[in-house]
Design a protein around this nucleic acid. Structure first.
Length: 350
DNA sequence: CATACGTGGCG
DNA sequence: TCGCCAAGTAT
């Protein structure tokens, strides 16, 4: 079946669809941008509240550029992949400095911004400016690969390229690139779903390769899975009155830009009765008030975090920083640290 | 091109 | 429970 007919069938189906996500009701490239970054590898149900919070706290790119990275990451906290937030901040500053605070309108300028790749640049170009680009996300990739039976690994550059090439002529000749792209994405999200595709109500099922061969689950191909590695973090929570010792994560590693209690990492679980770091004798066994463990499974690793909570007489000299408990509550922290804080809210009074 | 990067939800 | 998945990008 020609692409034109397939696309028209989807557009026709889309006319009877109602969606209420807040970013669908704006042409503001800034808001479109924020929504697309938030939605990268993130479900609509998880990202919506963050979008509301972002446009409320930072109504314009100028506001975003003016806030501190700490504040931005705190707003981002709980979403994950926070290089997205760091790149959002970098891009906002670039737009203010190089584009006079006006969001760029050309695809080449947009994709040059940090954190924006082919999908996001295409989405902004189509949704905000109605320019003829195809935004191939996981939804679009899925239904096209199933319909045509295209081989290729999920999310691979090659498959995304093939899907884009297939749909581009139609978008270029269509009345509304904006509407086309929204229909293509919604079709994948609502009909050609990942787990339980709605083939019984799909207007294209008769000519779908995957459905005809009962191979809906085979497209797109998934890569062989790798094992997650285990990491053991031992945190030392040193509390002196209303002060606590804190470190900043700046290494090229997980949770870059977030704060944590001083820690050492071990490849293997170590014993809880040791004090591997004692801050030159300032930590004494009798000062240990609790030992708690939390785990968090990430995409490529499993974090086992142990927290030793110590009470000390007074602050001491350290390469780490003493801050008040109130200040701590305003700093971005990882999921495991957030678990620890929530579990000890009698101390940290969140 | 393969791999790393968070978190929450579903089956 | 646990693996897979979610409006991807940088390296």
């Amino acid at each position: 079946m020609p692409t034109k007919h397939i696309a028209n069938t989807i557009l026709n189906w889309h006319q009877g669809i109602e969606r209420s996500m807040p970013w669908l009701f704006t042409d503001d490239p800034y808001q479109i941008w924020i929504s697309e970054i938030i939605l990268q590898q993130t479900q609509v149900s998880q990202g919506t509240a963050y979008f509301q919070k972002f446009v409320s706290l930072y109504p314009s790119v100028v506001d975003l550029a003016a806030t501190s990275l700490d504040n931005l990451l705190k707003t981002w906290e709980g979403l994950g992949y926070n290089s997205r937030a760091r790149n959002l901040h970098r891009s906002a500053k670039i737009i203010v400095e190089q584009f006079d605070g006006i969001f760029p309108t050309q695809f080449e300028e947009i994709i040059a911004l940090p954190g924006i790749g082919d999908y996001t640049a295409s989405a902004i170009s189509a949704f905000a400016y109605n320019q003829p680009y195809v935004a191939v996300d996981t939804n679009v990739e899925r239904w096209v690969s199933r319909y045509l039976g295209i081989k290729g690994y999920k999310s691979s550059p090659q498959l995304r390229k093939d899907v884009k090439a297939y749909l581009l002529p139609f978008v270029e000749n269509s009345m509304s690139a904006r509407n086309c792209n929204q229909a293509f994405i919604d079709f994948g999200a609502l009909i050609c779903k990942s787990r339980k595709p709605e083939c019984t109500v799909c207007p294209l099922s008769d000519s779908c390769y995957a459905h005809s061969n009962n191979q809906e689950a085979q497209f797109p191909q998934s890569k062989p899975k790798k094992k997650r590695r285990h990491r053991h973090f031992y945190h030392y929570v040193c509390i002196a009155g209303d002060k606590v010792l804190i470190d900043y994560r700046e290494a090229q590693d997980i949770w870059q830009g977030m704060y944590e209690f001083p820690q050492i990492e071990s490849l293997n679980p170590s014993r809880a009765d040791e004090i591997p770091i004692d801050f030159s004798g300032h930590l004494k066994p009798e000062g240990l008030t609790s030992t708690q463990q939390f785990s968090q499974t990430l995409t490529h690793q499993i974090i086992h975090a142990t927290f030793y909570t110590y009470t000390v007489e007074s602050v001491f000299e350290s390469s780490s920083r003493w801050i008040t408990l109130e200040e701590l509550v305003n700093l971005p922290v990882s999921g495991v640290v957030r678990l620890y804080l929530a579990q000890n809210n009698h101390i940290f009074k969140l």
